[in-house]
Nucleic acid binder design. Structure first.
Length: 315
RNA sequence: GGUGGGGUGGCCGAGUGGCUAAUGGCAGCAGACUGUAAAUCUGCCGGGUUAACGCCCUACGAAGGUUCGAAUCCUUCCCCCACCA
């Protein structure tokens, strides 16, 4: 807390379809900023329409980092991303611009601005073997394992359970202990602008989904399904599997659109829960992106940034 | 007009006399979350009241009836679907 030695980085976050990109572009008109995308899906090349990537024109107008940097079959991770984002931020600052981190992937933001832990070395081959073995087991079974290996983590989801087992078996340590003992220091101080459209968000999501369908999402998916293995991580973007089912004729367009809207709304809800609780105690300014005062509030937030020393006059 | 099937909680859909405010799924609400995170999980979910146990009310198309007891059985009516006319 209160460590003023770390430089401040401005970040715009919030649920999907709330207007983060709009806010960033608006700021770019009055300040020399470059955007660092904190979005785990815009990382992937070729997944454009359904991830609402900034358009080529927008990317030309404002420098963007963190977009189209991975092959669909590659797997990202919060730690991997934070490492890169750190580099992008430094690069932006070195060029004399102000970095603006923009995105809704809460875990990535935490990895960059909060604490992570230094992962102990693990044998790659053993790891793969273990993952294959555990991959078959039902959650309840995994939960029983973790209840013994690392009880503090036994209430979590499948992904976390697998991680806990893997660390415990391969390093002989509990992740929950490692989190405490090997925690890494934060790299930057974040100053958050949380944008949310409030009650209007549901409508925005529905409109955005329709726009994506009209913009050729189905064609994109048809093409991708020819080139990208169906179990590639990139497909884990809400809506993509549904649109793929539609392209494969398993779902009518109407039903697919309906599903996509529902899935997106559910995702936005999870994001809200995350930001509401995980950002508690941080420097957060909330604004209503659907309200009439949006631009004024955005500008006021940015003006407040001056007091913090505008963007990484690095320490 | 005839014959057969069916009408269940916001939706889908089990349930054929008590263990049923009613399995399950969906949607919704709340929550968790440190190397897969647009992922992965957990809880709640007719109304009222209660910290909770509980209690009260309403509910299985409608109205009657049988029964100690009915979403489940009987009668009539309404509506839907299929087939035959």
């Amino acid at each position: 807390m209160g460590d003023n030695s770390r430089p401040v980085v401005h970040v715009i976050c919030g649920p999907t379809a709330a207007g983060k990109t709009r806010a960033a572009l608006e700021l770019a008109r009055v300040a020399d900023v470059a955007v660092v995308s904190a979005d785990s899906r815009q990382l992937y090349r070729g997944f454009d329409v359904g991830t609402a990537k900034p358009s080529p024109a927008e990317q030309r107008a404002v420098a963007h980092y963190g977009i189209d940097v991975l092959d669909p079959a590659e797997r990202a991770s919060a730690a991997w991303w934070a490492e890169r984002a750190d580099g992008w931020i430094r690069a932006v600052i070195a060029r004399g611009q102000t970095p603006l981190v923009v995105g809704g992937t809460g875990l990535y933001l935490r990895a960059l601005f909060g604490h992570l832990f230094e992962e102990p070395a693990m044998d790659a081959a053993q790891r793969v073997a273990l993952q294959e073995e555990l991959g078959e087991l039902p959650v309840e079974e995994l939960r029983r394992w973790v209840a013994r290996l690392d009880p503090d983590r036994a209430h979590l989801g499948r992904t976390q359970l697998l991680r806990a087992i893997e660390i415990a078996l391969l390093t002989g340590r509990r992740v929950s202990d490692l989190h405490r003992e090997r925690r890494t220091p934060p790299r930057w101080r974040a100053r958050y602008l949380l944008v949310d459209a409030g009650p209007a968000l549901g409508r925005h999501i529905a409109e955005r989904a329709r726009t994506m369908f009209d913009a050729g999402w189905a064609d994109e998916v048809r093409e991708l399904s020819r080139q990208v293995s169906s179990d590639a991580p990139a497909w884990n973007a809400s809506g993509y599997r549904t649109v793929r089912a539609m392209v494969d004729g398993e779902l009518t367009p109407d039903l697919a659109l309906e599903r996509v809207v529902i899935e997106t709304r559910q995702y936005a809800k999870r994001q809200r829960t995350w930001f509401r609780h995980q950002l508690a105690g941080e420097d957060v300014t909330s604004i209503d992106s659907a309200g009439p005062a949006f631009s004024a509030q955005l500008a006021a937030w940015w003006r407040g940034a001056a007091r913090h020393g505008r963007g990484g006059s690095a320490a």
